[in-house]
Design a protein around this nucleic acid. Structure first.
Lengths: 138, 138, 138, 138
DNA sequence: GTGGTCTAGACCACA
DNA sequence: GTGGTCTAGACCACA
């Protein structure tokens, strides 16, 4: 199973966090083309999040071409999703980074100060966060 | 005049964007203690944002001890706001950076890849963004 | 249900009256930690006050650490709010009493006269005012 | 000259504080019938308050029958004002006391607790506040 | 002119 | 259903 971590208070809407994390899981191969996703009900219970919210994320993922519905069976990763999600992942991260860095520069920090801040954050977080989620039970 | 750039669709509430940008301006000395802020009405017109939204940001800034009200005259930067806003700025940026980096690590990027991404973004953006707003239009 | 009495013309802002009365209710245990508050819409209708005004009071109460939001469900009393609200209640009342007594002394009344006035008012009002609101209508 | 103490943040409007304090001064004989009040300009400067606000208080005092205008000379205390202001003073104070005590009872304090609170406040404030203002220069 | 408060009504994410 | 945010427009005290 994939690895989800939802933070209800980080500004990003919950359904959007799910969308991104599914795309990221596809991008890194944790979810492979053709693979069946856990049902709305199961995921809802697992994440302690309302099923409507999960369903909305899944709709978005279908609209984005990452998932497709197999009638009666559920949602599977699209055949060509891996590459697309890699691209999506990169642009999502770039956009967010750009926003923070812009805000920092705009707020009077120098490039040097920002670099220092970022590098110390990366060091701090790397190792603390599992980089690949591998078969974490269901 | 101060430098504001509001994006109504970036997920952060407009009033919150204003709060942050005012704090950042105080942190970097663009707004000095005792200095009068542009009035709610003026700012409202300039940013094309409803006066109530501006007022809400200003109330928040008063609650946070960054601004104080001079009856009938307007709002001024508190005497001791500069240092507090520097601290606030740092923790706001750290928190946002932490979120993005965590998301990236979680999404399967290595610390090295993230580092590369960040450094290239900084290089790209630095120079393009004015670090101090000095008499920018109007 | 809690007991509210709002007077739109008593000088104190409506939202501030709500803030105080909620804190008082928490202080005296009419509202217990974890308990769900009546919704903005319900309270708005009950008190014949605009929902935004209620919402503003609730936001203030959250900022003050008395309430916290359960997404999509409503607002509940914080676990540690009771004691804090007791303290808040005392200082609110002390401040108001101080103001009246100062005004009275300033206006030429002696301490003795004020004492007499206060004691007779207390006697008069005590008994007329329910000290604990228990299931009052609706 | 009479003794004024204005607190811009005590909830009562400034002009209303002035109205009350003039009435109180008349009630206690600090201002006698026929006596000329300081001009708007003088008072404005003395209290560091905008002349409009003073003027508004004086209008109110005329409407209430406490002051009358002597064309070309200024405002004087009405002949029959002393007694009326005594009555007004008592009812103003009673009303404010009633409000605080009601709020306290409503908030779950017992009559006994309130009595204790009030008496300690009176003791604390009596002596600290000049009860009669006597010729405090111009 | 200034900010502070209130109403009325809309749209959004979430349960 | 829940709260959170935003717009539009009114009235008030004060300078």
């Amino acid at each position: 199973m994939m690895f989800f971590s939802i933070d209800p208070n980080n500004g990003v809407a919950i359904y959007e966090q799910i969308v991104r994390q599914v795309k990221f899981a596809i991008a890194q191969g944790t979810l492979l083309p053709g693979q069946l996703l856990p049902s709305v009900r199961v995921l809802s219970q697992k994440l302690a999040i309302n099923p409507n919210t999960i369903a909305r994320a899944f709709q978005q993922l279908q609209a984005d071409g990452a998932l497709e519905s197999l009638r009666g069976r559920g949602l599977v990763v699209c055949a060509d999703a891996t590459e697309a999600c890699r691209t999506a992942r990169r642009s999502i991260l770039e956009e967010r980074l750009r926003a923070v860095i812009t805000e920092a520069l705009h707020g009077g920090l120098t490039a040097k100060e920002i670099r220092r801040l970022v590098l110390s954050q990366i060091d701090e977080l790397d190792g603390a966060v599992p980089t690949v989620a591998s078969g974490d039970a269901d």
